[in-house]
């Protein structure tokens, strides 16, 4: 079943069309890899999917219903990993994670902190739980960011260059986490330049949707 779809999406950044006429569909348990050169709009598409950007035209739909109609419900079912790690240097690793976990739906009954330990374990930073964030290396910060998405369940993962600064072991952990997530019916959309082993992923090459002539790309006055 096709759960998450985009139809005829147009993205405008700074009065320049980044891509136009883009369609995508992600089924339950499927993965979509975004490919394309720098500036082809991979990050913009992920931000569109998350609802941080609004498409200039076109619609995003979840199970047939437009996501714009109920943004709160849409945000409740997604995890977004951007370029920044959203980590507070003065809070410990566990405190950082517990904060983000506490803002998610589900787990209202249980203590959101319960999932923190296993999530840190997944990415091999459980021994750093009580270390303030400012002492982490770039790769460890990245692992913490990824631990955030496994702490609270959400069906849709939107990952923007998730392997930046990760070593091989952590990349393998991420691939395993993605596989586990998909086995449970979750969906993953990932933009990456490095080789990631994502089984059976569909590849969406954004350069096909680039607006070639700059003249056509300008907004009408």
């Amino acid at each position: 079943m096709t759960l998450f779809t985009g139809r005829n999406l147009v993205c405008v950044r700074g009065e320049r069309r980044v891509f136009a006429g883009l369609d995508f569909a992600v089924d339950a348990g499927a993965a979509l890899v975004l490919a394309g050169a720098n500036g082809s709009g991979k990050s913009s598409l992920l931000r569109l999917m998350a609802g941080l950007l609004r498409p200039a035209s076109g619609t995003l739909a979840w199970d047939g219903a437009a996501t714009a109609a109920d943004p709160d419900a849409h945000r409740a079912r997604l995890h977004y990993v951007g370029h920044l790690d959203a980590m507070k240097p003065v809070l410990t690793v566990a405190e950082n994670l517990r904060f983000w976990a506490g803002l998610r739906p589900g787990r209202r009954t249980g203590n959101p902190g319960d999932a923190v330990g296993p999530a840190l374990e997944t990415f091999g930073i459980a021994h750093l739980a009580d270390v303030p964030g400012r002492f982490l290396s770039a790769g460890q910060k990245r692992r913490l960011t990824l631990a955030r998405i496994v702490t609270a369940p959400a069906p849709l993962w939107l990952l923007d260059e998730p392997t930046t600064a990760l070593d091989e072991a952590a990349t393998a952990s991420l691939e395993a986490a993605i596989a586990g997530h998909r086995a449970g019916g979750g969906m993953v959309v990932v933009a990456t330049h490095t080789r990631m082993a994502v089984d059976g992923a569909r590849v969406l090459d954004l350069s096909h949707f680039a607006v070639r002539s700059q003249g056509a790309g300008e907004l009408g006055s």
């Binding site: 941080l52 409740a76 951007g82 959203a86 803002l103």
Partner: peptide, 13 residues
């Protein structure tokens, strides 16, 4: 600056 605001805007409230 550290991206927290993005994530706060993406929480379901």
């Amino acid at each position: 600056e550290d991206g927290s605001l993005e994530l706060l805007a993406l929480t379901p409230m």
